[in-house]
Amino acid sequence: MDAKLKYKAKKIKIVFFDIDDTLRTSKTGFIPATIPTVFKQLREKGILTGIASGRGIFGVVPEIRELKPDFFVTLNGAYIEDKKGQVIYQHQIEKLDVEEYVSWTKEEGIEYGLVGSHDAKLSTRTELISEAIDPIYPNLDVDPDFHEKADIYQMWTFEEKGDDLHLPESLSDKLRMVRWHEHSSDIVPISG
């Protein structure tokens, strides 16, 4: 390592890790035995650690929690907790935008999911939805009206339209689609 890179490395204060297919294989749940050692060595050097994931805090598996990271940046940055469970930041999607999104999915003939800070619900349960979501959140309940009971931080599409699907203009200046599965996209705030 050259001197310039060593100098930059000494300035590192925090390191963030994604969960799926970074720390943990999403299909099998395998976590390399070296991962806890990496977290321990970073702590010994005084470097903070964080998890940064599209998953909700409720979807962070026990093996990742056991690594004792200092921060959990979840729902693509919309909900952040420290290691003590204290909320550091939260950014909900406006209720009217959620309602418009739900109406749009019905017009498009696609299904959806709604994600709160500590729970998520599906509009229905189909094989296509199960294939996409169960590896991340097994056995989610169906509640198409979840947004009437909880603040929503993120939403999902479930469809076969792929990259041909686009949000309506009335939502595309506030929300964006991030494809994470062949049959699903995260719907997140543009500012997120």
Rank of each mutant, 00 (worst) to 15 (best):
A132W: 04
I136S: 08
K83R: 04
S130P: 06
Y153C: 03
K174A: 06
G162R: 04
K121G: 02
W104Y: 09
G46K: 11
D18C: 12
G77S: 11
M155T: 13
E107A: 06
Q86M: 00
D20Y: 15
I190A: 13
N76V: 10
D164M: 05
M177S: 15
N139C: 08
G46M: 13
P36S: 01
I190V: 15
T37F: 07
K45Q: 15
L67N: 06
R65H: 14
P135T: 05
A9P: 04
Q154M: 13
N139M: 09
L114A: 05
P144A: 08
F72E: 09
L48Q: 06
H91G: 04
V60H: 07
K4Q: 10
A52T: 09
I129Y: 01
Q92P: 09
L167N: 07
L42H: 06
L23G: 03
S191N: 15
D151A: 12
L48K: 10
Q41H: 12
E169T: 12
W156M: 11
F146S: 05
W104N: 00
D143N: 14
I19V: 15
T37G: 04
E159G: 01
P36A: 04
E182L: 01
K174L: 09
D164K: 08
E182K: 05
H118M: 05
S184N: 03
P36K: 03
L128D: 01
K161M: 08
H183I: 05
E99H: 04
I31T: 05
L48Y: 06
Y89W: 15
E108Y: 03
P135Y: 02
I152N: 10
I187A: 08
K95F: 09
P69E: 07
V73I: 15
E99P: 02
K68S: 15
A78C: 14
D164E: 09
D164N: 08
V60Q: 03
K4M: 09
E160T: 15
W156S: 07
L48G: 08
S170R: 13
P69W: 05
D163F: 01
S172F: 04
G56V: 11
F39N: 05
I152F: 10
I129H: 06
F71T: 00
G50T: 04
G192W: 11
E131P: 01
V178P: 00
I133W: 07
L171A: 10
L140Y: 12
L42F: 07
D2G: 14
I35A: 06
H91W: 01
G46A: 12
S103N: 11
A150E: 15
G113H: 04
I51Q: 07
L165G: 09
E169G: 13
L96D: 13
F30D: 10
I190C: 13
V115P: 01
I47F: 06
E99W: 00
V38A: 14
V60R: 05
K161L: 11
G50F: 08
L128R: 10
I187C: 11
